[in-house]
């Protein structure tokens, strides 16, 4: 971006006050500070809107209307949303076949409501092997484009192998809930993981090595876990991608992730944290071209493999 062309809008109001100094402060000003790109009248929104975006990690729930998701997405220029519905540990459910079918029906309904905006992902529980494979067929036949799994079973558990092999056949990606809390890797087990069956970076490394032709998406890289540790573990596994969703928008995380994972393995995502999802990429030191890849192109390349890409 040419920053200079923006150095105008707020200079007037700022200069008026600053040229006289901040009352109560010492010092003087040689010249008014330059006004940057985002200082006046929402110029940051022009920067937001200039990138096409696929939100690769979002959810629909019975208590959240799809329309509300569309509304906030419109405000942030998000063109497509990859949505799933899951059974979490807070629901009191165990993700039985009927329960994961109900989740997927909710997604299918939203897809029909907003066919130009939502890309659906199927949810399943590999404890129920036969029913899971049947559910993949049911959902993909109705236009879903990938799989989302939660913490019922770790991704490197043999129960997952038939599911992973099916997704490899379909050339589709698996989005896997993940966390990397203190003590990962067995170094400080006294901290442990709040969710025992949640996949940790080492689980992704294991399954990526077993299935180098598979595509795995590490969920919410900075969703509260240790993103530095995660990137260091995933560095050498090119078939593991990471989405940048999550509520904990720590500075420098995106730049760090590009350094270790490369600019082609990162996806934009929100997982409910819409402003953080956009803001953290926008704040990074990446080039416009790199941001375009993360906001849109990288995931579209994944969709292209199964013929589900966005034009």
């Amino acid at each position: 971006m040419n920053r200079r062309k923006f150095f105008r809008n707020s200079a007037v109001s700022a200069a008026g006050m600053l040229s006289a100094g901040i009352p109560g402060l010492t010092g003087c000003l040689d010249s008014a500070p330059p006004a940057g790109p985002f200082s006046s009248s929402g110029n940051i929104m022009k920067e937001v809107m200039k990138y096409r975006k696929i939100n690769t990690h979002e959810h629909v729930r019975p208590d959240i209307s799809p329309g509300a998701l569309i509304e906030v997405s419109d405000r942030l220029g998000i063109e497509k949303l990859v949505i799933s519905s899951i059974v979490t540990e807070y629901s009191g459910k165990s993700a039985t076949p009927q329960e994961f079918r109900d989740c997927n029906d909710l997604v299918l309904k939203a897809m029909k409501q907003y066919p130009d905006r939502f890309l659906g992902q199927a949810f399943l529980n590999p404890v129920y092997g036969k029913e899971s494979l049947e559910e993949i067929k049911r959902c993909m036949d109705q236009g879903m484009t990938g799989l989302k799994v939660y913490n019922q079973v770790k991704i490197n558990d043999p129960l997952f192998y038939p599911v992973i092999e099916k997704l490899i056949d379909l050339k589709m990606i698996i989005l896997v809930h993940a966390f990397c809390g203190l003590g990962m890797g067995g170094h400080r087990p006294k901290y442990g993981n709040t969710e025992p069956n949640t996949s940790i970076p080492e689980d992704f490394a294991g399954v990526a090595k077993r299935y180098p032709e598979g595509m795995f998406q590490y969920a919410h890289l900075h969703g509260g876990g240790d993103w530095e540790y995660t990137c260091r573990i995933l560095q050498d596994y090119p078939n593991v991608y990471a989405d940048l969703s999550g509520s904990n928008n720590e500075a420098d995380a995106v730049d760090f992730a590009v350094r270790y994972l490369g600019e082609d393995r990162l996806f934009f995502g929100t997982d409910g944290s819409h402003f953080q999802g956009v803001g953290t990429i926008l704040s990074s030191r990446l080039s416009d071209a790199q941001k375009e890849k993360i906001f849109f192109c990288n995931y579209n390349d994944v969709l292209k493999r199964s013929g589900n890409h966005v034009n």
Partner: peptide, 17 residues
């Protein structure tokens, strides 16, 4: 800053309808 990214706090304001 420098703990959180620089722009999310601004985005919450500027994206208000």
């Amino acid at each position: 800053t420098p703990i959180l990214d620089y722009l999310t706090g601004l985005l919450r304001i500027e994206s208000l309808s």
